[in-house]
Amino acid sequence: MGPELSRENLVNAVLALALLAAPLIAVALDEPFYVTLASRVAILALAGVGLNLALGTGGMVSFGHAAFFGLGGYVAGVAALHGFEGSHFIAWPLEIGGSEHMLVIWAVALVVTAVVALGIGAVSLRTSGVYFIMITLAFAQMIYYFAISLPTYGGEDGLSIYLRSGLPGIEAEDPLTFFLVCYALLLGVIYLLHRLVDSRFGAALQCARMNPERLATLGIAPFPVKLTAFTLSAMITGLAGALFAELNGFVSPAMLSWQLSGEIIIFVILGGVGRLFGPLAGAALFILLESFIGGLTDRWQLVLGLVLLSVVLFARGGVIGLLAGKARHD
């Protein structure tokens, strides 16, 4: 399926360019706040892109993706703490200290979330429907309370990251550079997922969502396919979490909370479930609404609630669905 100039592709391209243009214009106008805002959009969109693989493509409604988002954040926070203090995370039998290298932190975040997601997925995927929604929530709550009870890493107050980690040859403390790193990652991951969804694995995953019995009769067991997709999805969200902690210079149990799981779901739905660029559209809309309505009135949550409710009740298919029409397979 080569690239085709459908309306959806056009909308996607406009979205991607707009996200790139916004911080460049902001720098030109000397409004650094909007660069940070654009980084937030890119990072939260990445978290949503991760969830979209499980939820949209695989039909696994995870209400616990904040667990992976927060774990990624804690990897960045803990690495920064030990790197800053020069102390060790584990002193024996291996000496594992902190790190100030972004690539190392990313790799660790990916590995940690992958291991945790394999465990959570292996248990949760035994259930389906509402039970799946709730058991993923339960696991996320477990990790949330675990983080709260860790006095070494800030407990309820969380951890500050005093120095943002760097890439070799790149000065990530500069907001625009950091945005470009996040942006490149977001587009890179979206491209990889586009390839993945069109691959044999992607076909199997979509079939596992639509008709698992048929997939099984074809000789492909749905469980490993779903577990792989769930794990990949968690890893992407975990990577986003590491970036989010670096952006804010702070990580706290709030990153693991169930409200955050809800917000990531909102990004996906608001943008359009299963759409490649849906989470970007959703996260962008969410954050724009939040910062502009939040500036106008204290009752921003009321407005958000009403907007969400109308999207669910009247605009099925989300923003992308509204702009680009129905998806091919719906």
Binding site: L55, V61, F63, G129, V130, I133, G262, I265, I266, I269, V273, R299, Q301, L302, L304, G305, L306, L308, L309, V312, L313, R316
Partner: peptide, 30 residues
């Protein structure tokens, strides 16, 4: 609201009732 959700999938229900939480909380604060 709720009676429009009976025929929807669980995802829509989760989202719509999540929106209701936001609305209720803000109204209670008000």
């Amino acid at each position: 609201v709720i009676r429009r959700l009976y025929d929807r999938d669980h995802l829509d229900q989760v989202l719509a009732t999540f929106a209701l939480i936001l609305i209720f909380s803000e109204l209670a604060r008000w």
